[in-house]
Design a protein around this nucleic acid. Structure first.
Lengths: 192, 192
DNA sequence: AAAAACTATTGATGTACATCAACGGTTTTG
DNA sequence: CAAAACCGTTGATGTACATCAATAGTTTTT
């Protein structure tokens, strides 16, 4: 039932069988059909969510009603609204399934207990965060110094499997570029 | 000698006197004069650096020779090149003192030992990272959806003490806006 | 104390990209 | 299976901002 998640864990850290059981004991599986929501803006996010199957998008809507996709989370990725989680505050993000998906949920309190009980897991999470930090940092940099074309090229290089699974205008949204511009960028650079 | 840093630590987590001694034992103080560098692009970054006095900027230079400031670190902030640190890779960032500064350095290996020996510290660092993540996430969002003026207003609200300590064109660089545009934004919105 | 370097401002001009609109093709839905 | 929704493309137009250039005030350097 939680096989994908357990495999993931075991591939990242060394855990005893007991620890595995501790983890399993607090996991809950949530199935989502395409277009269903894992989180809606305004609700408080109280979980850690591991995508064991499918694909979800995390996005935010600005004052003018424009959607801005922050992240695609395919299998073996995490999703959530960290700000809402940390501050027990209404979420500003929405999380929507783009494919039928299965999500492993661990409630906040349980999660914190796990981190305390399994030091290797704590350290692993810290490393995950460090890598996320570097990725985000790079994204800020690219946002300020790359052209639309460079952003797109970087994206397909970093996430080669995503383009075939999500509509193009969502990639545009992720990149902070209009769908029309992305279309033009693609068609002009292909002209080999 | 490391008073500022120790005070900082004690204000964040509960530590025993022994633990304080452990920390002190691996700290090194580095003094920088204005315009001196803590890190130069190309060198490998092997420390955790706490700014106990002064102010440093972390920036990156793009292909066209343009500087992009990633962060200002005044007293009680950290600075470094996390990617270089994690991967033992030549740094892409430069860190320069904008004022005469004092930096507390902890070498990578020592730092990791500390985290392992002091669980509360480990958890605290994880929380720091989580907050940094949220900040960066928000910066990506603002980069894609805010006007130059909104970016500036957000900046002075988030970091009200910085503008009086750094030249305006550096704030422009941080915001990903040209110095001319920032100047215009400021002068037009002030016309109350 | 003079020279050199740095800084903010303002005007003129250029440009990457957004926006608006129309279209045909495809997928989803009732 | 027809209607509706969604999707990518293309053209015309608009605009926020960058770039270039000149100037004057300030700070730093020697």
């Amino acid at each position: 039932m939680f096989d994908n998640f357990i495999n993931y864990l075991q591939s990242k850290i060394t855990v005893t069988d007991e620890e595995i059981e501790m983890v399993k004991a607090v996991c809950r599986l949530k199935k989502l059909r395409r277009k269903q929501y894992l989180l809606q803006e305004g609700d408080v996010w109280r979980y850690n969510a591991f995508v064991s199957k499918g694909l979800v998008r995390t996005y935010r809507v600005d004052d003018k009603g424009q959607e801005h996709i922050f992240q695609f989370s395919p299998e073996d990725w995490w999703a959530g609204d960290r700000y809402s989680y940390l501050n027990d505050t209404p979420a500003q993000f929405n999380i929507e399934a783009l494919e039928d998906s299965e999500i492993v949920l661990i409630a906040k309190g349980d999660y914190e207990n796990l981190l305390e009980a399994i030091p290797a897991y704590n350290t692993f999470v810290r490393m995950l965060l460090e890598r996320s930090f570097v990725r985000l940092q790079n994204r800020v940099y690219m946002g300020n110094s790359y052209t639309a074309e460079e952003k797109y090229n970087d994206f397909i290089k970093a996430y080669p499997d995503i383009p075939s699974r999500v509509p193009q205008h969502m990639i545009a949204s992720y990149l902070g570029v209009s769908p029309e511009t992305l279309s033009r960028v693609r068609n002009h650079s292909v002209k080999k």
